[in-house]
């Protein structure tokens, strides 16, 4: 099994160290291309230039969900098969996901002002993304507050799995709430179809984001492995873990 072969942290570092620059390069090239396409693509007939926010905003929102999914799957493997690497992978993904979510919220807000005339609209989708952001914060805070690395990994893995099951329920409840309260309907930017001239930049940007995620993720996993090794060495040498 390739996965169990790679689950050895040392082997993982060795295999992926040479891959990293390539992923980084891929991400940068895609970003350059995508951003060029963003500005080369035509203005929207209704939204004008502000439609270009979409190319930053929509992939960020996709990544916010995707990263949580990655975290959930990694947590599952960490919890069931007790792979230290899976724990590290879940932990490493969390801050990246939180930043993507924050980016989605902020760009959404910046987009909302010219489009809807308000920085924030309590609509179903925005509210769910806000809850997702709180999830990430809770996950990171829980991990930081438990000193023992293995226990922290286990507790956060349980949290991530509860979250994974709950997210659709929360999403549903928020949508339900929204239909209850939605008075005047706001102008929705997502029209029935997206024109191909807009689809291309969106697609390239989505891939760029994904490559960026993989790059940052690999770095963070590697850092996590190294820091564990370091703490292990210190502990063996008689220093207190994490202390000065």
């Amino acid at each position: 099994m390739i996965i169990s072969w790679l689950a050895n942290p040392d082997r993982f570092s060795k295999v992926f160290a040479p891959v990293r620059p390539w992923v980084a390069g891929l991400s940068l090239v895609l970003f350059a291309w995508g951003l060029y396409l963003c500005f080369a693509s035509p203005e929207d007939y209704q939204q004008g230039d502000t439609v270009r926010i979409m190319y930053i905003h929509v992939p960020a929102a996709w990544m916010a969900l995707f990263t949580y999914l990655v975290m959930g799957v990694a947590s599952f493997f960490g919890l069931i098969f007790r792979h230290a690497l899976a724990d590290a992978a879940a932990k490493a993904a969390a801050p990246i996901g939180a930043v993507f979510t924050a980016l989605a919220l902020i760009t959404g807000s910046l987009w909302g002002k010219p489009m809807w005339g308000t920085w924030w609209e309590w609509d179903g989708r925005m509210t769910s993304v806000l809850v997702l952001f709180l999830f990430y914060i809770g996950y990171i805070a829980l991990h930081a507050s438990i000193e023992d690395e293995q226990r922290a990994a286990k507790s956060t893995a349980i949290l991530a799995l509860i979250g994974l099951i709950n997210l659709p329920i929360i999403k549903f409840s928020v949508d339900w709430w929204n239909t209850l309260h939605q008075g005047a309907s706001v102008f929705r930017p997502d029209g029935p179809t997206v024109a191909p001239s807009m689809l291309w930049p969106l697609l390239v940007m989505a891939l760029a984001y994904k490559a960026l995620f993989v790059w940052l993720w690999l770095i963070r996993i590697d850092t996590e492995i190294l820091s564990r090794k370091y703490n292990g060495l210190r502990a063996r040498l008689g220093f207190r873990e994490g202390g000065a």
Binding site: V131, L134, F135, I137, G138, A141, L142, L159, I162, G163, N166, I169, I170, F172, S173, V174, W176, W177
Partner: peptide
């Protein structure tokens, strides 16, 4: 509180 409140969202809404 931080961990639990997001999970309180559905019952509060319903």
């Amino acid at each position: 509180a931080l961990l639990v409140l997001p999970f309180y969202v559905p019952p509060v809404i319903f």
